[in-house]
């Protein structure tokens, strides 16, 4: 039967001090490491969705829906109002278009011009877009209206980021 190894006083102190030092170093490093990689764990603000309407309200005809988002710049925190033209396509897909004219930024209206009852119309310079938001050639805008990311949860329509096309 071998005798259990004896640990000298010196060895015991060495072990405990190394162990303790290790713990202290780890304790100091942890917040630094966390700080360095923290942004990785933050949910991307870009993926924010906002509840906008009951999906039952969405019809085949484009309608205006409004919602509010918080916006922070260097000086102010403010609430800004967002708007979208929302409708349901024949195949039931929900389309949400930004109302901001891609020409100079006026707000476009659906069917507001009698001559073009099935188009989006910009009152400023007569820019026009078809129902799917594509700009009509020969009018001032050079790009289609941006679309919002959409998702439906528990019967509510959520809109996310605008995607330029």
């Amino acid at each position: 039967m071998s005798e259990p190894k004896k640990v000298s006083r010196r060895q015991f102190l060495n072990y405990t001090l190394t162990g303790l030092g290790g713990f202290m170093a780890a304790g100091m490093m942890a917040p630094m490491v966390r700080f360095a990689i923290d942004p990785v764990f933050k949910p991307a603000a870009a993926g924010d969705f906002h509840s906008v309407a009951d999906v039952k309200e969405v019809t085949n005809e484009p309608q205006r829906f409004e919602w509010e988002v918080e916006q922070v710049d260097a000086w102010y925190e403010s609430t800004i109002q967002k708007t979208a033209w929302v409708y349901r396509k024949e195949d039931d897909e929900i389309i949400a278009l930004s109302p901001i004219c891609t020409h100079l930024g006026c707000t476009v209206d659906w069917a507001s011009n009698e001559e073009y009852p099935k188009q989006f119309f910009c009152p400023c310079h007569g820019g026009r877009y078809t129902k799917d938001g594509v700009n009509v050639p020969g009018t001032p805008p050079t790009a289609p209206l941006p679309v919002f990311e959409t998702k439906v949860e528990d019967g509510m329509l959520y809109l996310g980021e605008e995607i330029a096309r």
């Binding site: 100079l104 930024g105 006026c106 707000t107 910009c122 009152p123 400023c124 310079h125």
Partner: peptide, 9 residues
């Protein structure tokens, strides 16, 4: 409100 509506003109 007017600004939002007509900012391009």
């Amino acid at each position: 409100i007017i600004e939002e509506q007509f900012r391009g003109r």
